[in-house]
Each structure stands twice: as C-alpha cells, then as structure tokens.
Amino acid sequence: MRRFAALVRRDLRLSLRAGTDATTAVMFFVVTVALFPLAIGPESTVLARIAAGVIWVAALLASLLSLERLFANDYEDGGLDLLALSPLPLEAAALAKVAAHWLVTGVPLILAAPVLALLLDMPAGGFAVLMASLALGTPSLSLIGAAGAALTLGARRGGVLLSLLVLPLFVPVLIFGAGAIDAALHGVAARPHLLLLGGFLAAALPLAPIAAAAAIRQALS
C-alpha cells in the first residue's frame, strides 16, 4: 500500500510539475464544447437538448488525449522495467498509474463540467446528475484506456490505434452517462443509469488492471 501510494505520488508530481497534462485535458474539454454553439447556432433550446451528449463526448475525448502517454514515457526510459521488477505487483502498479491519471485529468473535467453546462443552457436540475455521472464514468474511461494504452506500447502509430481500440469499449459508459443526465432532465429517475455506471466501474476496477498488466508484460518480454 505504501509503494502504491508512492507510485501515485510520483506520477502526480511528474504530471503537475510538467504542468501540461492536466491543463491540456481541461482546455481541450472546454474548447471542444465551445465549438458546438458556434457550429450549431446559439438557440438555447437546441443547446440545452444536446448539452448532456456534447459534454460527455468532449469529456471522453479529453480523457483519451493523455492516455497515450500513460505508460509510454516509462516504457521508453526503462522505468516500466523497474516497475515490473519491483515487489509491487504489476497489476497494482497499473492501477496506481490509472489513479494518478484520473486525478490529473478526470477530476478537473468533473469540476469544469457544470460551468460548461451553464454555457450550454442546461437546466440547473441536471447539474448534480451530470457531476455524479462523470464521477462514476471517468474512472472507467481511465481504466479501460489504460488497458488500451498498454496494448499499443511500441506499436506504430500508437495514438490513432489507441483511439480505434478504446472508443468502441467506451460506448456503454457514454450511453449510460449521457442517459442519466437526460433522464434527470426529463423528470425520470436517473438512478438506474447511475447504478449501471457504478456496476461498469466495479467490473473495470479489478479487470482492467489485470489486462493492462498482462499487456505490459507482453510489451516488456
């Protein structure tokens, strides 16, 4: 547990010191969402109708942005070999890196989302569900993405390939995440959607690190 925390701290420190990952993801999120009113037009009824979907798609793409480098830096400078040799199981190491990635990219997205929802004229009744659905959904995105990032280590055109592999697997999270907000806005219970999101997270939490660790072992062997 101490080693796990140390690894999380190291990754957090690295990305905060470089100062790019966290801000790029949020900036990308904000700019992408801001494009929609420009392209679709400023009618608030239309914007309010599509707000949930737009915010979710933008959050999904934003968390995909930095995933490519999740293991790649350590893979290139040999740090991943040391992690594989350390007494910490590789599964736990993968989970620690996912946790750091989520703290750096996922949490700012959740905090920025209500502001964007305001810009898109989403009724205030959806804000709590919006943040709850992102809080349950973005960790799943990071987890599934980590498995994809580990699979594409050392591949040609890894970044494009990563999105091709991971986006189909993101679809359930997207459906239920946006569905929860739509349900809340239409006065239907959002709880079933949120429960499904939670179930998805509960399944991804133990399984995705196993897949990621298996893929890392393949890449290192």
Binding site: I144, L151, T152, A155, R156, L161, L165, L169, A215, Q218
Partner: peptide
C-alpha cells in the same frame, strides 16, 4: 489494426489476444 501494428508479429498476436478477451 492492432495485430498488424507491430514490427514483431508475435507481439502483435499477443496484444491482439488480450484485446479480444477484453
């Protein structure tokens, strides 16, 4: 795409196997 993305064919096959299981 994944299977064909590596210079080492065995690595591509192994990565592909994990993807299929996921």
């Amino acid at each position: 795409a994944l299977v064909n993305a590596f210079d080492d064919p065995v690595r591509g096959l192994k990565a592909g196997a994990i993807l299929v299981l996921v």
